[in-house]
Design a protein around this nucleic acid. Structure first.
Lengths: 217, 217
DNA sequence: GTGCAATTGTGAAACAGTTCACAAACTGAG
DNA sequence: CTCAGTTTGTGAACTGTTTCACAATTGCAC
């Protein structure tokens, strides 16, 4: 039975993985899938799959498994991707520019509606079909366009100032690519992504001598 | 005392955070820092900081704290970023292209030496100072240039084929941005990054009604 | 129908990660 | 040299997550 409880980040992350596997399964014509198969595809134990899903309800049929189409829709609902979201990007440098053109976002219903920069040479120009606005216009434009999520891709030094504006505009979800710590009020959800840290993770594993790889299941 | 043990991903991730805080502290002229201060800067408990560091040795002085410069260097050594790494990027689309120009990599000693694509219009051209090679040349060129890490930024459909080549070339660390599951042999370290999943995480938090935000410390 | 095989949903157990709490070790003042 | 004040390093306790194991259900064959 469904219980309201704190759902862990790892569970949410895995829901996204299940969603992708289910989408693939649906495409290849599967009607149902069991936790064993879904687990195999995502390198997880069947128990993990069942436990994750059980936090949100009971969607399977004993002896048979889960209905692919239905479960996929249910997860979309849980993740809030059964709808579209209005997203803005601040900072049209390397990363920001890449994200504007990133097809996967469109596909999942994340629509990039606005892009901002502080470089006069970029402001007013079209970038992959998006007009780049002056970051000075950030707050009013976010409000006016009903933006719900903002991706911050500016240098570390200017990130906090941008985030403050974004918060003031009433946006409650921010994804930052700035390699710095950011302060946001309690009610705003912030995630920070750092590509360099990902490479450092690789480097740690190559560097040894600390760490031993655990046995695979 | 230093104990060889499986180090958790979270600890490794936090080491990267400490490294950044320490670099900032060094720049601002601090000689020493205590776990309380370091924890405050990264929104972690002092105990967490001390525990993380204790996995690798004992670097502090009781009553005083940690020597900033020394600890920073030590963490660099642990993470393997006290040296340079030769990195190649496969796929010069939105993401790949952004990463080629990403300054933070250079700064941390990750040098992008090669870039590959399968688009004849891109092959042979310079992209932000890097010559784009034909992906058909992948294996020999990785070998010849002593590439130690590869970033895979190709569409989901071609990712496994690329990864197989990369593995055959003897590369032991791969960072993938392809939204798909990849198989690699036991001895190869693979991390998969997926921007869309990050946005789905935001979306989950906005969507409710599942989840209740936990109290902040 | 009945029975067999399959698979879920879920408490309980095991494991992993975090925080506590305190002895040990150091600094600096007097 | 001693003492008060700090802060580390680390077992132990705690908290959270994953895995186990099994009753409860269902599908399907006959």
């Amino acid at each position: 039975m469904y219980k309201s409880k704190r759902i862990s980040d790892s569970t949410i992350h895995r829901l996204s993985l299940y969603y992708r596997s289910l989408a693939a399964l649906e495409k290849s014509g599967h009607q149902t899938v069991c936790s064993k198969e879904l687990g195999k595809r995502e390198k997880l134990t069947p128990a993990q799959v069942r436990k994750d899903l059980s936090f949100f309800g009971s969607f399977g049929t004993r002896g048979l498994g889960y209905p692919v189409r239905e479960l996929k829709d249910k997860i979309a609902e849980i993740l809030g991707i059964n709808r579209t979201w209005n997203v803005a990007i601040v900072g049209v440098g390397n990363i920001g520019s890449a994200l504007i053109g990133y097809k996967e976002f469109q596909k999942q219903g994340f629509h990039i509606r606005l892009a901002f920069d502080n470089d006069q040479r970029k402001i007013g120009s079209l970038h992959k079909g998006i007009l780049i606005s002056d970051v000075k216009e950030l707050k009013p434009l976010l409000r006016k366009n009903g933006i719900q999520m903002v991706i911050v891709a500016v240098p570390a030094g200017s990130a906090q100032a941008v985030v403050d504006e974004v918060v003031e505009a009433g946006v409650k979800a921010i994804l930052s690519f700035a390699p710095t710590n950011l302060k946001v009020p309690e009610e705003v959800f912030l995630r920070t992504e750092n590509m360099a840290i990902e490479l450092e993770h690789l480097s740690f594993h190559l560097a040894k001598p600390y760490y031993r790889r655990p046995a695979r299941p």
